[in-house]
Amino acid sequence: MELLLSSAIGTLTAAGVYLILRLRTFAVVLGMTMLSYAINLFLFSTGRLVVNAPPILQKGVEVHTDPLPQALVLTAIVISFGMTAVVVMMALGAFIEGGDDRVDMPRADRMPGDDQA
């Protein structure tokens, strides 16, 4: 199970990073969403994997999984929504204002003498 989850985290990260490295805003937004999934899963996994032991106190149940990473991830999920929303809005604004959805600075505006990108 650990292997499955860590391979999923790795794949999501790789996909997220690859998409963030694209040159258009929407791909970057998608990439950030993917990276958020990966990071949330990763944070969650630091509490180690436990099946069938939710951190809810009930009579007769002694084993609970670690609740702290869950609390952290819960707020992280909501915050990453906020972040995605702001980034989407910026992408949209840039597209409406500038007429294109590239993320990179136009080559003409870059630092002089530095164009080997």
Binding site: E2, G10, A14, V17, R22, S45, L49
Partner: peptide
């Protein structure tokens, strides 16, 4: 190049998660 960077990051991150979980 991007695929290479992404794969490397993914491998690193996945391996880290695996090590922590084990």
């Amino acid at each position: 190049m991007d695929a290479f960077v992404a794969t490397l990051t993914g491998l690193g991150f996945g391996a880290l998660a695996y090590v922590i979980m084990r």
